[in-house]
Amino acid sequence: MMNTPMIEVKNLKKYFRTPRGNLYAVDDVSFTIERGMTLGVVGESGCGKSTLGRVLLRLLPHTSGQFLFDGTDVLQLDIEEMKELRKKIQIIFQDPYGSLNPRFTTSQSIEEPLEILMPELDANQRNARIMELMDTVGLASRFVNAYPHELDGGRRQRIGVARALAVNPEFIVCDEPVSALDVSIQAQILNLVMDLQEKMNLSYMFITHDLSVVKHISDEILVMYLGQCIEKAPTEKLFSKPMHPYTQALISSIPLPDPRKQNRERHIIMGEVKSPIEPQPGCRFAPRCPHKIDKCVGKNIPLLEVEQDHLLSCVVFGREE
């Protein structure tokens, strides 16, 4: 059955102007997300994954490209239309310490999006909704008047989730929602996020640097390196048969909690991420790549389908144009 995907991002670019030239934070990224599905976006610091999330929500202006939500180009909407659309698209931020107003109590924090985006509700309805949301995200009602500093990281992140859910969105960008939390708390929030998806048929774009988290939560994974998508595949496929040398290195760099698997084959890559300012044409991973050949530099490498649903941008392991 062919139907238009709920989310379709086409050739999205975001460049920042710097004194030394343009910084290519997001450079020609395209993907789709079906309703009820999760796309995981992985990459290391500075690869542009957070910028991508922010551009989709128009928290940053884009440079070029399209973001179609049920067929509407979100990036072209005016302020009023955008306000209406924010009921459908929400974000959960990384840092539950920095993303909440320290002077707002739990109920005020959750009330804020309701006041702005659902002015039709009266105070009683809003209060009822706040209690309902606190229950949904697993926050005990005794915390209703607590300030962020009185709560631990896990509970603060639950407020973040409640704020995102307040207006009944359909698509949520999760920007590293668990990376600031301890493993046991991280597991609680991941379970919550997955339960909510099942209950409300939500779609997620889940941004993270943690491959075990992204494997657990995603249906499909997009790997970013210096602003570009270098490989995209269904989760099982990406982990069982990673094709880009960078993806292979990422996966084999994860320390496995299994001492008997320590002699597995490793691809430790040397060197560090190069500057994203005015990159030269060619594969951006080439300077660190152990399989580099002459064809890797000089010409941009297209993202091509090498197997069904498996996109790859690599001249060594990929398909000839």
């Binding site: 046991s184 609680q188 991941l190 379970n191 075990s212 494997k215 657990h216 994860i254 909690p257 299994d258």
Partner: peptide, 23 residues
């Protein structure tokens, strides 16, 4: 046990994690 139940596994597919309740 709770600590180990909280880490998403790289090998097998788990539907849910088994975290430790509380703080």
């Amino acid at each position: 046990k709770g600590l180990f139940g909280s880490i998403p596994s790289m090998n097998e597919k788990m539907k849910r994690l088994n975290p430790i309740a509380g703080l």
